[in-house]
Design a protein around this nucleic acid. Structure first.
Lengths: 200, 200
DNA sequence: GACAAGAACGAACGATCGTACTATTCTGCG
DNA sequence: CGCAGAATAGTACGATCGTTCGTTCTTGTC
């Protein structure tokens, strides 16, 4: 049971990497087999079907994202520091071209109009992400860092938008100012949510 | 020369529609031929190659987007009204599921890591879009609607992010509050750029 | 109405897709 | 060692991919 699990993990790791380039629907069993140095049928034995492979890759990407972004953020103090940590790790995840996060952005665009199990899972993951952001932001409210009447759902929407913009500007356009713009937008979001809204 | 142009237009129209669902790389000559009711080879005679078809569809989408969003905005008075008009038409473009705009979002995610002519064109289009937004915003500065030291490029980045977030929340998650969140984010952007920053 | 040009079709190609089935090799337990 | 069972490879399948080629149908011009 040990050997199988090892290759299975290698497959999924490589799968996330490949899917981050060509998309989750562009992911091909033959190509992934070649990338991992095994035969098509050998790989297919692990991934019982194409859709199952996509779901497994998606699950792997989710875990990688949680490990790289969510979990580190939750170890920092509640409130604004935690929100900042979340943002920082998220940006780093994009800057270092860590495939996990990018795969989610890509898959979300790919499957927003294609019903099926993959889309259903993506909806769950994105809903979870929004709820996590809103929850982290809410700790900032209870800590008194943010306004009482600030809307966590609205903040989650806005932060997600900032990150989407960052990914696009950074990866597609290669804009060297992408990160600076994202940081500025993020600070503006925090400024708007803080009780003392003193600007320069 | 008339008949050919008519079917060519029909092909591209249907192509934009299809590509908005399955993506620009997921667009298939056979499927598009079936959708337009013609033979694979008949359609292929128009689109000299797959890549050429993708570029033509992209050009069609660009024109549709310009007609639906950019051009109407440019007919409204300079300054904040024009910025608002741009936003309104953009949101409408997404709400009515007009394929043109959505195709751009999808294609941008698809090709951010796949070199080639399609990606190059996408970069040009997105750069143009950012510059257009920044330019429209700049008219607001010269009109005195926005702060002199506001950064048009930063505003373009932020607005693009808001729209990306809107598309994702609206199309993938089906969140009924997506538009309200986008509107709120947009108003926050304007508030931050306005000289008199009086909040409720 | 004949005829050249353009538009659309049908069939076929090599390649690759996802998926099945059957071997073969490896691995761990007695 | 031997052997069961897991892990991988091999091969083949129907379908579809992008593309090519030759043929038919439509169209506008003299």
């Amino acid at each position: 049971m040990s050997k199988g699990d090892a290759t299975r993990q290698a497959i999924l790791h490589r799968g996330v990497e490949t899917a981050a380039r060509v998309g989750l629907s562009g992911l091909t069993i033959g190509e992934l087999a070649a990338a991992t140095g095994m035969s098509k049928s050998g790989l297919f034995a692990h991934a019982k079907s194409k859709e199952s492979l996509q779901l497994q890759v998606l699950a792997q990407a989710r875990e990688e994202f949680i490990d790289a972004v969510i979990r580190p953020a939750l170890t920092t103090p509640r409130g604004e520091p935690r929100v900042r940590s979340l943002f920082e790790h998220w940006v780093t995840c994009g800057r270092t071209r860590m495939p996990g996060g990018c795969l989610f952005v890509k898959a979300a665009a790919e499957y927003d109009d294609r019903p099926g199990a993959v889309r259903d899972q993506l909806v769950r993951d994105h809903t979870d992400l929004h709820e996590t952001i809103a929850h982290v932001f809410r700790t900032g409210i209870t800590e008194g860092h943010f306004l009482d009447d600030a809307d966590p759902a609205e903040f989650a929407f806005a932060l997600h938008g900032v990150m989407l913009g960052f990914y696009h500007s950074y990866r597609l356009l290669g804009d060297p100012a992408a990160e600076a713009h994202a940081r500025q937008s993020f600070e503006d979001l925090l400024d708007a949510a803080r009780p003392t809204s003193d600007t320069a």
